[in-house]
Design a protein around this nucleic acid. Structure first.
Length: 756
RNA sequence: GCCGGAGUGGUGGAAUGGUAGACGCGGCGGACUCAAAAUCCGUUGAGCUUGCGCUCAUGUGGGUUCAAGUCCCACCUCCGGCACCA
């Protein structure tokens, strides 16, 4: 059991009430632990972990240092959501339509120094290794989309006026002849240089407007595309034709080169833009070598046959791509290029309640000289820093030695925002500033995001008390990889991608021996409210497990959750269904009021028992918990008919029931005279011979319709089955004045007669 | 729009290409009870016959097959995810 207890909710509650997040966390953990224990899960509580425990986050920090040493953790200027009114930086989910979720205050995007993790360095492996994983196709597909590999080419376009070249990325280099204009993103570095004097005012106005637009607005597909001509022309290298360079925010600064060649005839976005601004549209791909009638209704984005493309005309798209990429390389104006949508991971948060990042910086004066210890106190250094008399060597981060981990979060009662974009830890002067070798240093004040602790917790389960390593080599060798990971689909990309990334880094560090952490993944479906809608307080359809436990008991509750339907399915709660599982348990209990006898069970009962043992075993392994329970219900329906209960039936029945209804099963086990818990009993064995019946019912079809059933010995020969089928009274009615054309006999299964 | 998943009785859901509706919930009838609840027994897809039976039925329309809920093609609806990524 693990508590992922750092993060926003505890911190926000702390700011609101003044209660330290550690206190809230402790109380919440105690409540949850009690609830979970009441359900009777077989967790190994000796392996309980808590991401906020310094003994745990020591290793979260240790992993960060490994990332840092490998150049996978670095600093960059990244925009954050700064809310002046609240005096704090907000997470993306706290910002709605450019306003803070709390209080509806304006939020501005401002650049800030952040720690980043270079997950992009692992993009290729994160994509490729999905192949071998036993995961739901949907999750794999989501990860592939998120990683977003695309193949294409980069191409240089000469800018008119001797301004050098503008490089674009395209996945359709074969449409180069159809590029009739170019677009660069508003944040493109060359925009200023490209813009002509006549257009400068218009372009600057557009850029300002684009910047104020939230990401959400910018990516709203339904919004009409906007843009402004920069005044500058470029040269299409394939045709030599001058084409205008526009600036438009439908081109993203952060992807590819931040500039595109626009081919309106063969790209829906370029088509819409060209239409809106009256730009030329030139067809260069056709379905069959013949251009479509103009004006075009829409862009033709499919592959096809090149037209009007110089020497390349007539080529199929795939071949053309190869040919033109080679030509571009030859001309030294382009090359093949693979691009990824995946971005590096912003790894710092301006929060108190998270793992401190184990990094510090030298404090230097305006001349760059170290600040000697002197008689200064940490508070004095803070003041010097605030007044600009000293600064931090932010470009030279220094790792906290591993031997000094954990770097513990300072005790404080002031975890409120600082009122400026600095994290709350900046206010903990005595923690932040320290003297080493006679000069001052300052610690990093950003903390890690909540993902950090949950990225690797499965490793800590292996060896949760180990103080010398995150887990011993023996424990890692013994347990990994995780053979079954059950989790919600909401973690499809972020958590599962981050965890895979860290695991691969640890693999490269030699800490773990497999490159993937979770071999098999199953997504349990969400339980909806009784109204079929997502449970939510505002909707008032929330089911409180505690109340259900009170009324129906833990076993009935567990059983109901399992019998509702397939584990993966999203399904609505129905309290009425709980009556069914409770009734089942009552009936099991009543069954044991019958005398338990040592006499052997009759053949039919024995067969039913063994079939059930086999089915419950198979279904449990395959996580078909609903049908496993149904099978036990069926068996019970047989057993209640008996006057006495043979021990040889009662004991295995209790044992297969135990994983599903442990409380009742344990009680019945004791009533059977056992003093030791059934937890130490092996799964009961089933006799395959008893799982097959001697006589079977064979359906007989005539022309595909069921007409009769034969009850015959299991191993009745084919010829005999055919004879019996044709002799059957019911079958004869349908074959009477017809010709039997064919008889298909599937032994033990079915007889199918075809008549004409 | 793209990707993934799902459409089966009144209802939750079962069904290696081989007897559609297992097992529940609910309903109906009966037993017990003064009565109700609980419990137990029976019954329960629709329709026709109320006889042995027959016809229809797994979102829609085609197809493959002796045989299709299951496989193939086209489409509809719902859920989840992504979405100006060139």
């Amino acid at each position: 059991m693990g508590w992922d207890a750092f993060g926003l909710p505890a911190e926000q509650y702390a700011i609101k009430t003044g209660t330290h997040p550690a206190v809230t966390t402790r109380a919440n953990v105690a409540t949850f632990r009690k609830q979970i224990q009441a359900l009777g899960f077989s967790y190994d509580w000796d392996r309980e972990v808590d991401t906020t425990d310094p003994g745990y986050y020591k290793w979260t920090q240790w992993i960060f240092l490994q990332l840092f040493k490998r150049g996978l953790a670095y600093q960059a200027e990244v925009p954050v959501n700064w809310c002046p009114a609240l005096g704090t930086v907000l997470a993306n989910e706290e910002v709605i339509d450019g306003k803070s979720e709390r209080g509806d205050h304006p939020v501005v995007r401002m650049p800030m120094r952040q720690w980043m993790l270079r997950i992009t360095a692992y993009a290729e492996r994160l994509l490729g290794d999905l192949e071998g994983l036993d995961w739901p196709e949907g999750i794999k597909a989501q990860q592939r989309t998120w990683i977003g590999r695309s193949e294409g080419a980069e191409v240089d376009f000469a800018i008119d006026g001797g301004l050098g070249t503008l490089r674009v990325y395209t996945t359709r280099p074969d449409t180069l002849f159809g590029a009739t204009y170019m677009v660069i993103a508003p944040e493109h570095a060359l925009l200023d240089a490209i813009t002509t004097e006549e257009q400068r005012v218009a372009v600057q106005a557009y850029v300002t407007q684009a910047r104020s637009r939230s990401d959400r607005d910018r990516t709203d597909d339904s919004r009409a595309k906007t843009g402004v001509f920069t005044g500058r022309m470029a040269i299409n290298p394939s045709t030599g034709a001058p084409i205008p360079i526009w600036v438009a925010d439908y081109v993203l600064g952060g992807y590819g080169t931040g500039a595109i060649m626009a081919v309106p005839a063969h790209d829906v976005r370029d088509f819409a833009f060209a239409r809106a601004y009256g730009l030329p549209i030139r067809q260069v791909v056709s379905r069959d070598g013949v251009p479509q009638a103009e004006p075009l209704e829409q862009a033709l984005t499919d592959d096809g046959i090149a037209i009007d493309s110089g020497a390349f005309s007539g080529m199929a798209t795939a071949a053309f791509k190869v040919a033109i990429t080679a030509w571009l390389a030859e001309q030294r104006i382009g090359e093949r290029k693979v691009n990824w949508k995946l971005r590096d991971w912003v790894f710092s948060r301006q929060r108190y309640w998270g793992e401190p990042i184990p990094i510090y910086y030298a404090v230097v004066d305006s001349a760059g000289a170290p600040l000697p210890a002197g008689a200064l106190q940490p508070g004095d250094v803070a003041r010097l820093l605030a007044d600009g008399n000293v600064r931090l060597l932010a470009d030279n981060p220094i790792a906290v030695p591993e031997s000094e981990l954990p770097l513990v979060l300072p005790e404080t009662d002031d975890f409120a925002p600082t009122g400026n974009p600095e994290p709350p830890l900046a206010k903990c002067h005595a923690w932040r500033f320290f003297v080493q070798d006679g000069v001052w240093f300052a610690r990093e004040t950003n903390t890690m995001p909540q993902w950090a602790g949950s990225c690797w917790y499965y490793l800590r389960y292996l060896d949760p008390k180990n103080d010398a390593a995150l887990a011993s080599r023996e424990a890692i060798a013994r347990w990994l990889p995780v053979d079954l990971y059950v989790g919600g689909a909401e973690h499809a990309v972020l958590h599962l991608l981050y965890a895979r990334f860290w695991h691969k880094v640890l693999f490269d560090c030699g800490v773990v021996q497999q490159s993937e952490p979770f071999q098999r993944l199953v997504n349990q479906g969400m339980i909806l409210g009784e109204d079929g809608e997502k449970m939510s307080k505002s909707r008032g359809n929330v089911i409180n497990p505690d109340a259900m436990l009170q009324v129906f008991g833990a076993d009935a509750f567990r059983l109901y959750e399992m019998v509702m339907g397939p584990l993966e399915a999203v399904k609505p709660w129905a309290t009425a269904g709980l009556h069914g599982t409770r009734r089942f348990l009552n009936r099991v209990h009543a069954l044991f009021d019958k005398p338990v006898v040592d006499a052997p069970a009759d053949d039919a009962t024995l067969r039913a028992l063994h079939k059930t043992i086999a089915k419950v075993g198979d279904d449990t392994r395959e996580l078909r918990l609903n049908t496993a329970i149904a099978a036990m219900m069926s068996l019970l329906n047989e057993l209640v008919r008996m006057a006495a209960l043979p021990r040889a039936v009662a004991e295995p029945f209790v044992l297969i029931l135990a994983p599903y209804a442990p409380h009742l099963a344990e009680e019945l086990w004791q009533r059977l005279g056992n003093s030791e818990s059934l937890a130490w009993q092996p799964w009961p064995a089933h006799d395959p011979a008893l799982c097959e019946d001697d006589t079977v019912e064979i359906p007989v079809q005539v022309n595909g319709k069921l007409r009769s059933k034969l009850t015959v010995a299991k191993d009745t020969p084919l010829a005999e089955l055919e004879r019996l089928a044709l002799a059957d009274v019911q079958v004869a009615k349908w074959t009477a004045d017809k010709v039997v054309a064919k008889v298909i006999v599937v032994p033990g299964r079915m007889v199918s007669v075809v008549v004409k």
